[in-house]
Write a protein that binds this DNA or RNA. Sequence first.
DNA 1: TGTGGACACCTTGTATACACGGAGCATCCA
DNA 2: TGGATGCTCCGTGTATACAAGGTGTCCACA
Lengths: 200, 200
Amino acid sequence: MIGAAILAGTFAEGEFLDEAVLAREVGTSRTPVREALHRLQAERFVDLVPRRGAQVRVVTATEMRQIYQARFVIEANAIGKICDRRLGAPPETPELIEALETAGRNQDWNEFAQLDQRFHSCIVQHQGNAVLAQMYDSLRPRQVRLAVRTITQGPERFPIIEREHRELEAALNAHDAALSTRILNVHLQEVPELVRAFSE
Amino acid sequence: MIGAAILAGTFAEGEFLDEAVLAREVGTSRTPVREALHRLQAERFVDLVPRRGAQVRVVTATEMRQIYQARFVIEANAIGKICDRRLGAPPETPELIEALETAGRNQDWNEFAQLDQRFHSCIVQHQGNAVLAQMYDSLRPRQVRLAVRTITQGPERFPIIEREHRELEAALNAHDAALSTRILNVHLQEVPELVRAFSE
DNA sequence: TGTGGACACCTTGTATACACGGAGCATCCA
DNA sequence: TGGATGCTCCGTGTATACAAGGTGTCCACA
């Protein structure tokens, strides 16, 4: 059901989730709750330890860095292919950039994060490999938990993100793989650095 | 439980799986079967369509090609990093190559496929990014179904695979990224070509 | 007073019963 | 005769009851 939403930030890391309690809170029985917890395990939100239950995973700075590395590997590959084939930026990008700037002006962090994700996701999809695209998207849930922490603490980064998106779009339309990759590299390195700054 | 094994090749593509029947066959109740089916969905073995049940996914030639592209993207990245840092081939490789050749001599296809997977998997793990490694491994179940089809039809490829593994190990130990990548590219392009050959 | 063992309670894992929704078939009408 | 509609049956989705295992506490003994 609303499994993912439950974990947005309401539980402490390492905490064990009680199925019965969750069921009561959601107003359903344990069965759907169990299924939701299994989905959450698949999305790496919780560890299911036998006979103990679902433990909220701790997202370490190391893991976060690795997630962004993984994003870079997949998205850089997509960019390379897009430039090779001279496809240009995905057709949705102007619209998404527009919406992103609106969300930025309105200080709507949720919307902003979601649009940012869609921007990058549509670039990866533009390459045409559904398997890679699905992998890329599967990284999202894990980022969300950190995203709320970081973005809310650094709203001054909004304009920077917006600018880099526009630069990336332009570089893609110029079929310039090297430039696009360079921009992406900078773009994706900022968040892990923020995370590190907080955790050290 | 044994969910994954069930699907090794015993069900027709597109077939709907009946929970009650499966439960009877396994000798358990529907509840564990349902959980297994959900896991199988996470592994992309089945599609869970609401109120209809679990449908065995059809693995198209296109998807197979994309899976091998995805493998290449991740493994090539690992190889690049390994050569950059001059790590050399993973310490397990000599042993794995040895075992692979034994399996090849014994015509043990199952063992062969498993060792081949472990060989590549340990290269990706050698890079040190657990997120990418887990992604890479998650591709495996989907390959297995095709692997049995192709390998059993082309056992003459065993020596070729073995040779390429040895070449890849040597190239890694020589810290030669370009050569390693070239070998990997050839190595991973053969299977999709076989698949295409069968399906056309 | 500290440590070890046993018991009880609590939570997960499994089974079964019930509810809900869809798909297929039959029948009726055009 | 063909199509549409309604009914029935079957299979998934959910709830609840029961079993099993683990953890924490309490008591007894050293």
